[in-house]
Simulated assay, not measured.
Amino acid sequence: MQAAVDDSVSALVALQHAPAGALVPVDGDAATHDRVQAAFEAMAPNTRRAYGSALRTWGQWAAAQQVSGLCPSPAALRRYLLERASEGAGVSSLTVFVSALRKLQALAVVEPTARDQLVVDTMSGLARQAAAPRQVSALTVGALAAIYETACFPRVGRGGVLEGAETALRRGLVDIALCWVMSDAGLRRSEAAALTWDDIARWDNGSGRLTVRRSKTDAGPRTVYLTPIAMAHLEAIRPQDADGSESVFGLSVASISRRVKAAARTAGLGAGYSGHSGRVGMARRMARAGAPTHEIMAQGRWKSAGMVADYTRNENAERAAKWLG
């Protein structure tokens, strides 16, 4: 006995979109009809909508691939899951799809291919990959140079309006200074948001010293180094009559993350950039220059060498080239 569904997208979606209490046509005896009806009455509206969306996407893929939408082979399901994951679908979304197809197969009384061990193992592998720690993309010198070249281009704002040239210039100069200072000083986004002009001192050689007064790990203030180029970018945004207690960037913690992401995206750097990218970038820049771990720890205010080792694992591995040729 089989529910009145076929391999078409419309049939798959309609079955899951059926409202609670509505008649869901099925072939077979009254017992089959009652089972299907009871299943849909017990299903929450949000669940029906989520299942319908997942099955719609699946049905389109199945039709394009000319595979059964209702009873596909486990190998076809694995291909679909891997393809969706490569396109950015999360494990939670894929889990909803698998659950929806399992429900559909159970109601239609067909071979439960969605419960095959190959499908189970594929989902387990995707979940393990998703759980693996992913390192934040780093604001290295190359990334900073790309941001410098593109930051002042007019962008479409959150309200959908394109910036004027002057607005884009002001915003872009702040973005450039923000990214350089965060990368030089290894600032957390909260530390960057709390930074005031009194916290920055210029030295005769053009470099600077930045005092971190609010820190996640330090009870007292810590002073770190700023390169001459970072100081030059700060001078470009400093008002002539700036009050020492005035915020340097004038941004909230959340805004800093958005600005770093947007600057990286405009520069064509791809995904993975965040308010933490400066800390990773500082560690990598110093490691590539040959700085010892304790010096990187001092600039980043780390109390443990573990984080430095994690952030600079690729740079540390490259050191073997000196000996391996």
Rank of each mutant, 00 (worst) to 15 (best):
L104P: 01
Q66R: 15
G142S: 06
S99H: 01
A89R: 11
A127E: 15
L107N: 07
W61T: 11
C152E: 15
F97K: 02
C71V: 12
Y51I: 05
M123D: 08
A130H: 14
M123W: 05
T95A: 14
T95R: 14
A54E: 10
R102G: 13
V141Y: 08
Q60D: 11
R48K: 11
A85M: 00
A114Y: 03
G142H: 04
S73C: 00
S68T: 07
E83Y: 01
A138Q: 05
Q66G: 11
V109K: 13
W58K: 01
V136L: 03
Q117F: 02
F97A: 02
A151S: 05
A76M: 01
A145R: 08
L82Y: 05
S86H: 01
A63M: 12
R49M: 08
E83L: 12
V110C: 15
G90C: 00
Q135L: 13
A145Q: 10
L126K: 08
T47V: 06
S86P: 01
S68K: 08
A76F: 00
V98H: 01
R155E: 11
L107H: 07
Q129D: 13
S137K: 10
Q117E: 11
Y80L: 04
V109I: 12
G69F: 03
Q60W: 05
L144C: 07
T150D: 04
G157V: 00
A106I: 00
V120Y: 10
G159N: 13
R79V: 04
L107Y: 06
T95H: 02
L139H: 02
Q135H: 04
R155P: 04
V120E: 14
Y80S: 02
P154V: 03
R158W: 09
Q66L: 12
G125F: 09
L70H: 03
A114P: 07
K103L: 15
L139C: 03
R158Y: 12
F153G: 07
K103T: 14
L77Q: 08
A127W: 14
R134T: 10
G159L: 12
T47A: 09
V120N: 10
L104Y: 00
V109M: 10
Y80N: 03
T122Q: 04
G90E: 12
R134N: 01
A114R: 03
L107P: 07
T57N: 14
P72H: 06
G159A: 11
E149H: 07
A130K: 14
R49G: 02
R48P: 09
M123R: 11
S86M: 00
L107T: 06
R128T: 13
V141E: 14
D116I: 00
A146D: 06
T57M: 10
T47N: 11
Q117H: 09
L144N: 06
D116E: 05
R48I: 07
A76E: 09
A76H: 07
A50P: 14
A132P: 00
V96F: 02
L126Y: 10
V98E: 06
L101H: 02
F97V: 01
L82Q: 12
T57K: 07
V110I: 13
R79I: 00
T113K: 08
L139K: 02
V67W: 12
G90S: 14
Q129G: 01
L94K: 06
S68E: 07
A63Y: 05
